[in-house]
Nucleic acid binder design. Structure first.
Lengths: 189, 189
DNA sequence: TATGACATGTAATCTGTTACATGATTAG
DNA sequence: CTAATCATGTAACAGATTACATGTCATA
């Protein structure tokens, strides 16, 4: 629907802004904890927030009078929440896998709070399907090329296959976890 | 030694140029096979080759008279080979792990042909050490945070841990493979 | 009053993406 | 002759990195 392309960092910010935060808060999330893959530099985050605000995805309000220096607190707009949901719920493609789990995991991590547990299960199923095909294709590629590769190159390739296989097993584990949760709460999937 | 910073794509090109190739050859490597993570667009590769040539890492020579259109074949210079070796053999840091296996695997894949099998074993050992510490740290972080996380966020975190654990197991497998190779050839490690 | 943490931003530079432009050679 | 493939590039733009600049507040 919206034609503006949002880079990965933008979606990370949208997801985190489900809880209203200042730019500084967001930087701390990126610099501490996991998510260190995203830059915590102000030169990345403040311009990104500016772009999101201009696109109407978030709205900043200066927090007054709380003693400290002026802090601008950003919140998701309805449009921003909608965009976040679209990004999360779209099916997993081969390209998503080629270009690293990073972004898929971000989608999954935000899924439950932004869309709901049922969407998390759907995302996992989509991921499972895509991974099965991808792992099979990688196996085939290895068979065709392994004769012409030096040992280290072959091992590096095998590492990629194992990583994706591990990822696939994780989807089973995650689905089983949701099934258990579902039974406990008696929800309809 | 050399002060110019080379981005990941630059090292990928240096590694591939162990076999002299044209820009077009390199693009095909990126677009087909694995390594799809690197862009195959001419706007990325030709400028990158130009920078490497200006830095004295590679040298291009126009291939004449072979019937086709002029093709420029690039070769590693001694300086370029030295830079490649330095990049491959430097110890694996925590940051290398945080920022994805991608680049480490590239180093490993080129290791055997650029430096030799003994260096591959050293790289694997360095990687193993770094991974053990990293996995332990991730486990600890999970323990501290799991109470405050929604299920999907916790599962996403666990996915990261499992992935690194799988990666660690791969290093054992790869080391075992090299040990076997070493015994077969009677080399001294 | 000086230091450090809080908090926000800008400017220069580099790299990558997208899209376009060019030209040679080969297959139909 | 025309289209596709080989082969190389450029230009405009978006986004990230790095480094710098600014200013508040608490505390030692």
């Amino acid at each position: 629907m919206s034609s503006t392309k949002i880079p990965s960092l933008g979606y990370a910010l949208l997801g985190l802004l489900q809880k209203p935060s200042s730019g500084y808060d967001l930087r701390k999330v990126f610099s501490s904890t996991s998510m260190k893959t995203y830059s915590d530099s102000p030169g990345a985050i403040y311009p990104a927030l500016g772009r999101l605000e201009k696109a109407g995805m978030i709205r900043g309000a200066i927090e007054e009078g709380s003693g400290l220096r002026r802090r601008q607190i950003f919140r998701l707009t309805p449009k921003g929440l909608s965009e976040l949901k679209h990004w999360i719920t779209r099916p997993v493609t081969r390209d998503d896998l080629v270009w690293g789990q990073q972004e898929i995991m971000l989608r999954f991590a935000f899924c439950e709070t932004a869309v709901g547990p049922a969407a998390a299960v759907e995302l996992l199923q989509s991921l499972e399907t895509a991974l099965q095909a991808y792992v099979a294709a990688l196996h085939e590629e290895l068979q065709q090329m392994k004769a012409a590769m030096p040992a280290s190159a072959r091992l590096a390739f095998e590492c990629g296959i194992r990583g994706n296989q591990c990822f696939l097993e994780w989807t089973h584990y995650a689905l089983a976890t949701y099934e258990k949760e579902g039974r406990k709460k008696g929800g309809t999937l």
